[in-house]
Design a protein around this nucleic acid. Structure first.
Lengths: 149, 149
DNA sequence: ATTTCTGCAAATGCTTTGCATTGCA
DNA sequence: TGCAATGCAAAGCATTTGCAGAAAT
């Protein structure tokens, strides 16, 4: 198994502290943070870190396939170091994004090689899939019932 | 069956030519246009139409449930008057969005009442689902093979 | 007559870009 | 040393907002 450094060097991409730091944050969380959140979390340890660098870094990591980008639609993309296909639940009240392990659709999709089937039937060459569930998380459901809104 | 006018009036939302025009464009296409595209298409017949009005209108139509919003992630949301759940294929080369009728997942999801199951198992209250396939459409696959890029 | 909507322009917020400086290889 | 990456500030887009005039009920 390759380390992240090896993966980057193999693609002639330089290994920098900023890149390692961004990746390490994503690797250690299940919160699917936005660029802004990553930046805020990095600041204490990397005071010179620039927001633009975080943007550029997630772009690099995404292209290399080390992370995936989620587009839940609240203005602001989210990032996830778990690159194996899995579905996500987005809370329209608090904005949190959770993995939805109960839905095995994407895994089954891959196991049954349904992408090949789609390619044959439609001519559309699928490179990735996203499955999003929108609604209210348990916490917000509780508090919302008390609020007028 | 209610007409669009009746649906709007029932919710105390005023029926205006702009709203009817936007809805009519979405009703008559399968191209999942962006706000900008809708605006461009409207301009010849409604020279005074403002882009901001199109934004406000899709918002109203969305809230009333007459259209749905797609977030394929190319900067710019897309709109669809077909509100029954169905999956979409997004071409990363030309940006087109097609319905993917071959994938019956969302329909099955509804038929089998899997939303209730998710609610019970996770406490997450799902109000809508989106299933996106990213890749290359047949046309772009052909032309891309000739280009360097 | 009231209330809501429209159209315009300015403002906002996320993201990208240009460029001088820095730092990895 | 040479080329790529960083950091900063400015620019770019999609979208939202405020408000005066217009239109729907």
């Amino acid at each position: 198994m390759q380390t992240i450094e090896e993966i980057l060097r193999a693609k002639k991409i330089k290994v920098t502290p900023q890149r390692m730091a961004v990746y390490s944050i994503l690797k250690d969380t299940k919160s699917h943070p936005s660029v802004e959140k990553i930046y805020q979390q990095l600041k204490p340890n990397y005071p010179a870190m620039s927001l633009a660098t975080v943007y550029k870094t997630v772009d690099v990591l995404k292209k290399v396939g080390l992370i995936q980008e989620l587009n839940v639609g609240d203005g602001g993309l989210r990032y996830d170091a778990a690159v194996k296909p899995h579905s996500h639940a987005y809370c329209e009240s608090c904005g949190r994004v959770d993995d939805l392990e109960q839905v095995r659709f994407l895994e089954e999709f891959r196991e049954e090689n349904l992408l090949e089937k789609i390619k044959k039937e439609t001519g559309f060459d699928v490179s990735s899939i996203q499955l999003y569930f929108y609604g209210l998380c348990p916490q917000c459901k509780k508090s919302n019932s008390k609020v007028v809104s």
